[in-house]
Each structure stands twice: as structure tokens, then as C-alpha cells.
Nucleic acid binder design. Structure first.
Lengths: 194, 194
DNA sequence: TCGACTATGTATAACGC
DNA sequence: TGCGTTATACATAGTCG
């Protein structure tokens, strides 16, 4: 549907792929919405960009009736959301602990027969998981912010050192001699963060 | 896309609706597949006909486990429930932007007492908010990681430049002259990232 | 990188069996 | 009811700014 017929295979050029993704994603979600309205059916679509962003459409227009179906439907969807979140985060190699945490949780949930869990049990479990999640997330953000802060500091010092070295060279060019005082200062800066 | 422009609203004529569903369903799943291949992203789409049948597409790229699980869950559900449900449209199902969603949410939570929002409304609202939260969080992590990556790159270049400046000074000290070639190199590095 | 444009390929509404 | 055909609306690939 464009100037040229396109073969359906991965677009090699990254920028083209990105543009196509933007357009087609929009188109897909629009179509999903149209079908759901025109034909009065239940449609859900989720798309993950490989930069980790989530796009979705969902028409939940035919729930109700039996409470059971309603519940299981919502739970299924919730499950997806949770797992998606986990998968996204565990993509990044430096946060393997989070993946491990979730693996353990998943195992535990699988070992338990769903029927044996009462609502009360599940409420407790949910609370525990939420607490663990919040803690993990908080720690992650903290570490990342620390990292960024440290890197900014490093950058500042390196620029400072650079400036001094350049001044040094300038003065050498002008005077024809090495300015020892300036060198001394520059070396103190270097030692400070290495 | 046919002989006539169609307004996007429920098709009244049942047979027309059925035909449209058949065609558009096929089209939607095809498009979903195309996006996933062309743009190399993860896509999942599920459609329930209102006669209880399930149609779906899923590209199991890095979400294999999740989608597999989703599939089986939904299929199990399908077996149990073949009943058709009464239509009940969610106020919250089609927000185009998160801002819109949040504004509406705030307004409604402020001006209503709990009695005006049904459980169904709240479940939908919860779902939409969760999706927005996940997206925001994912974006945050992505941006932070990008930032860290950029800073590491900067650091590397600054160190490189520094090294060259130091070499330059060393050679000046040794030879008593400015090494022009070395200066040239150093300046190229500087330009590269400023 | 981003949006707007436009030529062109696709999807599909209506129709006919 | 479902499939094939056709005319038309729509989506979008390539392009320009």
C-alpha cells in the first residue's frame, strides 16, 4: 500500500523500520478498534516496540454474565501485564536479580493448585509481591540515579582536567616553556577520581 | 475501503455484520502478522466473536512464555464458557492519550462518591491505569539506561582526549617543541563529541 | 529526526451467484 | 451462508522539507 510493493520480511534499514512501525502500529490499533465497533466483538491487541514501549488496544465490551468468566478474564489480563513488565525489565543484563525473584515467584505459583488458594490467601500473596516489587523497583531507580550522578561528576572532572591540559599547552606555545605550577594542579585533579 | 464509505458504528444488519467481521478479522490478523515481521516487534492480537469463538495472532519473539500462557488460559476459558454476554461498554476503554485518561480519572474520582462507580467501571479504570503505569515505567527505565550509555561514551572520549593531551605535554618536555601532529589528533577527538 | 504529501498497493462494501 | 468480483475507500512506502 504505498509507492511500491513491499515484501513481508524484516526491514533492514533501521530508520525505515522505525517509520514503518510507527505508521503500521497506528493502523493496526485503528483497525482493531474498527472491528470491535463495527462487528460488536471483543478485540485486544498488544504491541511491544523493541525499545520496550507498550502499545495496546482493548475493547472489553462483552464481559459480565457469569462472574466467573468476568473474573478469569480480568485475571488473565492482569497476569499478562505483570509478566510483560517482568520480561521487559529482565532484558537488561544488570538487573538479573529481579528476574530471579520473579522466577521464584512463578515457580511458587505453579506449584500451588489455584483452587486451593482462597481469596484471603491471594490478598496476602498480592500484598507480599507488591511490597517486594516496590522495594526492587525503588532500589533499581536509586542505583541508576547514583550511576548517572557519578558519571556526571566524572565528566565534570575530566573536562576540568582537559581544560588545564589545554591551557598548559597554550602557555607552552606562547612562552616556550612548561608551566610547572599548572601541571601540578592538573595532576591533583587526575588523582582525585581515578 | 469499499463501494461506499462506512461510518464506524455497530453494523445493524446482522448478516452484513457477520460478513464484515469475517473479512476484517482476517485483515486484522494479517496486518498484525505483517507489523511483527516487517518491524521485528512482538505483537499479540485476540478476537472473540460474539458467538464465543476465539481468533488470535501472536508473534512469540521474546514473550514466548507469556503469550503461550495467555493462549492456554484463554482456551481453557473458552471451553468452559460458550455463553454470549450482554453488551456493556466501558467508559474508559478508548482513551487515546495517557493525559486524557488521567484527567478524566481525576475528575471522576473527585466529583463522584463511590456509589456512582460500579465495580465494572473500576475494573476497567484499574486496567487502563495499570497499562499507563507500565508504559511510563518502561519508558523511564529505557531513558535512564540510554543516559548511562551516553555518559559512558562521553567518559571514554574525554579520557582519550586527555591521554592525547598528556602525551603531547610529555613530548614537549622531551623535545622542547610542540608536536603538531599530535595536536591535530587531539583536536579531532575534541570536535567529535562537543 | 519528524511531519506532511502523494502515488500506489490493499482491504473491503456491495453485489451477484 | 459463503465465495468471487468489482469499485472504491483507505493505508502506507517513498519522498520532500
Amino acid at each position: 500500500m504505498g509507492r511500491k510493493k513491499v515484501e513481508i520480511k524484516r526491514i533492514q534499514e533501521k530508520s525505515c523500520r522505525q517509520v514503518a512501525f510507527c505508521k503500521r502500529r497506528k493502523g493496526l490499533l485503528k483497525k482493531a478498534k474498527e472491528v470491535s465497533i463495527l462487528c460488536d466483538v471483543d478485540v485486544a491487541a498488544v504491541i511491544f516496540s523493541n525499545s520496550g514501549r507498550l502499545y495496546q488496544f482493548s475493547s472489553t465490551n462483552s464481559l459480565t454474565g457469569t462472574l466467573q468468566r468476568y473474573k478469569s478474564h480480568v485475571e488473565a489480563e492482569k497476569e499478562i501485564c505483570t509478566e510483560i513488565q517482568v520480561t521487559e525489565h529482565s532484558k537488561y543484563s544488570s538487573f538479573t536479580t529481579m528476574g530471579e525473584l520473579l522466577q521464584t515467584t512463578e515457580r511458587e505459583l505453579e506449584e500451588t493448585n489455584a483452587d486451593d488458594l482462597t481469596v484471603t490467601d491471594l490478598v496476602h500473596l498480592e500484598k507480599d509481591l507488591e511490597a517486594a516489587l516496590i522495594q526492587t523497583r525503588s532500589r533499581k531507580t536509586h542505583l541508576m540515579l547514583e550511576s548517572v550522578k557519578g558519571l556526571h561528576e566524572k565528566e565534570k572532572l575530566l573536562r576540568e582536567e582537559n581544560k588545564l591540559l589545554e591551557d598548559n599547552i597554550s602557555s607552552i606555545k606562547k612562552n616556550g616553556t612548561v608551566n610547572e605550577m599548572s601541571m601540578g594542579r592538573q595532576q591533583r585533579v587526575t588523582l582525585k577520581f581515578l
